[in-house]
Amino acid sequence: MMFSFCADPKSLEGLQWLSCYLTTGTHMSFYGSFLTVLVLLAVTAPVALAFGFGGAVAGRSHVAPLRWIGKTYMAMVRGIPDIVFFLFFIVALDQGLEYLFHFVRCEDLSQPVRQAGEFRACPAAKIPPGSAPPAIHQIYNFALAVFTFAIVFGAFAANVLSGAMQAVPRAQLETAESFGMTPRQINRRILIPQMWVYALPGLSNLWMVLIKATPLLFILGIEDVVYWAQQLGAMKTQTFSYPHPDWRLWYFLGLLVFYLLLTKVSEVVLDRIMTRLRRGLPMAENGATA
């Protein structure tokens, strides 16, 4: 309760009612969930980029098994619908870890873990343990979600980066070679610095898609902005302190504005980065061909 006059909500009217309503515990959780989305973006983007970079480098590697891993990663994750991958991977990851721990930590291994439709890892194998505070459970679920987001968007990033690496004019690399640079030096000094210019349009597109994919958190059972908009917008009867009719339309309108703002700001920032990256690279400015 933020204001003292909120003690008896049913006697309130107008602006007072609204100011009390908008500062309830549930609304605070709603505002907090916007932060959840931003944290998800802030953590996922660099991790996905790292995965993408790893995937792209592996995909171009001269070592065959490494190349296969890189190519399979890109093809597999990009070929499966996000939502299917999310629903499958989260369960598979969670149960896979617990399955592993089951054999490491449990004493009674006489019974199979999967039995009669149940997944029976012993209590010591549970991640997090049943006794852990709810916050740990929530962080764990969120971590699983971020990891899955990073894998999915990493595969797309890998594809963008590997395309960008190919787009760097061969003449540049050959010149470097003729100067006597080793393949490693060429990568570090010529290929990677120039690659970003070609990668940025694709990566900024990916960033926009990532922003728009954040409501997938809701499907993964995380209390994100969509969850709270649904929960708060639902019609409330007199059982609640602040009864109101179905207001989902307004809550979702709020989300719409939030996402539009987020993508608009991103566009402006990405445009600036692009201008900066292009500086001193005349080639990239007049089309990407050599």
């Binding site: 953590v43 991790v47 870890l97 721990f101 930590r105 209590p123 010591a124 549970k126 991640i127 997090p128 343990p129 049943g130 006794s131 852990a132 740990i136 962080i139 764990y140 971590a143 699983l144 971020v146 990891f147 990073a150 929960q231």
Partner: peptide, 30 residues
């Protein structure tokens, strides 16, 4: 991210022994 998962995993591994009383997690729709 991996670090976070690792930290959680370590928490998970060390947390098990500490609980004297059984914790029952009850699911509700709300």
């Amino acid at each position: 991210m991996k670090k976070l998962i690792l930290t959680t995993a370590i928490l998970a591994l060390t947390g098990g022994a500490a609980s004297a009383q059984q914790v029952v997690r009850l699911a509700t729709e709300g």
